[in-house]
């Protein structure tokens, strides 16, 4: 029964190495909520840009005729991980959770697991 703010707060607090989180509508690229980030890392800009990543992947799957659903997308930078998790709940159509992790501190498997739990909590 979390609201978006507590869900994002929880993501930052409970996921080791998380430095920013956003909930994004991938049709419009709008961040419906952001938490964390910094002056040098604008989450709303990242949110808008990463909608193109999600759309490109969805389109490619369409081209390939793949019927599966995207659960998450992982992008590894030299010092960061970016984790995108598409929401599947009844209200969450067209939304994704976006998580920025510090690669030195993060445990990817744990982060994925926690993110899945947060998505369930959000109940959208």
């Amino acid at each position: 029964m979390a609201n978006t703010e507590t869900a994002l707060k929880e993501a930052l607090a409970s996921i080791e190495g998380a430095t920013g989180a956003a909930l994004v509508d991938y049709t419009t690229g709008m961040a419906l909520g952001t938490m964390g980030g910094s002056k040098s890392f604008d989450l709303t800009v990242a949110a808008a840009g990463n909608t193109d990543v999600v759309r490109a992947k969805l389109r490619t799957m369409e081209h390939l005729g793949l019927k599966g659903q995207i659960e998450d997308i992982l992008i590894t930078l030299s010092d960061q991980y970016h984790l995108i998790r598409l929401l599947t709940g009844r209200g969450g159509n067209g939304l994704f959770l976006y998580l920025v992790l510090d690669a030195k501190r993060a445990n990817l498997a744990m982060a994925r697991h926690q993110l899945r739990k947060i998505e369930e909590d959000l109940e959208v």
């Binding site: 029964m1 979390a2 609201n3 978006t4 869900a7 909930l23 509508d25 419009t28 709008m30 419906l32 909520g33 709940g89 009844r90 209200g91 969450g92 939304l95 909590d121 959000l122 109940e123 959208v124």
Partner: peptide
């Protein structure tokens, strides 16, 4: 009837 998160997200979507 609806969770707080779902209402918020739908509300924000509709508002913008």
């Amino acid at each position: 009837l609806i969770s707080e998160g779902a209402l918020e997200l739908c509300h924000l979507g509709a508002l913008y």
